[in-house]
Design a binder for these strands. Structure first.
Length: 223
DNA sequence: ATGACGATTTACT
DNA sequence: GTAAATCGTCATA
């Protein structure tokens, strides 16, 4: 009762700004087990537990959008304060979402997969269609739960995360934010540390183990 | 102005 | 396993 209530309140705790102000390779594994929450304008909520992340270390990291100190309109948010969402558009059709971290140092953590928690039916509807209404897949079958958010672009589509949320402040926003796992949930599982996915032309940086995922999760994008 | 590329996903052989 | 989809971004001219 009293203890149960206090636990519930702890579970709803959002990280403060300072929690994000650290290296991407420290934040990436720390994000595992946290919930990413998306509140739509109509009040409906979509949420999932983060089960896969990748660290992008800033100017030194050849695979990072800020490599070499590049500062452009697209990656401007990465150079800003930690705790904001960096959303980018790629392959002419996909969005990916990152958590900006570090100290205005051009670092971020890519969220690569979620274990769906809330709004699964709506996620399925989003995944079957594109923003323009066209079908996203030929199969008329429903998207398997396992595949709802098992990939950086898939989870963005499921949660309706697009460029409109680029720069969103995860510390204050009611549209997109993080919540701690709390007690009784998200018990520390085994974190697997591997090389990043889809990094080809980054030389030695392609070989660095900067990806983390929950070994026991069926929602991870690539095993 | 032009061209190559992309932190992906899907379908198909 | 391979290839197509599809277009904003960035480097080069």
């Amino acid at each position: 009762m009293a203890s149960s209530d206090s636990v519930s309140q702890q579970e709803a705790t959002r990280p403060a700004r300072a929690w994000f102000a650290r290296r991407a390779d420290e934040l990436a594994p720390a994000l595992l087990g946290m919930r990413l929450v998306r509140l739509l304008d109509d009040g409906r909520q979509l949420a999932g537990e983060i089960v896969e992340t990748e660290a992008y270390l800033g100017p030194v990291d050849r695979a990072c959008h800020t490599f070499g100190g590049r500062r452009t309109a697209r990656n401007e948010v990465m150079w800003g304060e930690p705790g904001r969402a960096y959303v980018y558009f790629t392959y002419g059709m996909h969005h990916c979402v990152n958590v900006v971290c570090g100290d205005c140092s051009g670092e971020a953590v890519l969220v690569r997969a979620l274990a769906p928690i809330a709004g699964l039916e709506l996620m399925g509807e989003h995944r079957r269609s594109r923003p323009d209404g066209r079908p996203a897949r030929r199969s008329a079958d429903t998207v398997p739960h396992r595949e709802l958010c098992s990939g950086p672009a898939r989870l963005c589509r499921a949660l309706l995360i697009d460029l409109g949320l680029n720069g969103e402040d995860l510390v204050r926003s009611s549209r997109l934010f993080l919540e701690g796992p709390g007690r009784g949930r998200g018990l520390p599982g085994v974190a697997v540390n591997t090389t990043r996915i889809g990094i080809q032309r980054a030389g030695e940086w392609a070989a660095k183990p900067l990806r983390w995922y929950r070994a026991e999760s069926p929602h991870v994008s690539v095993r």
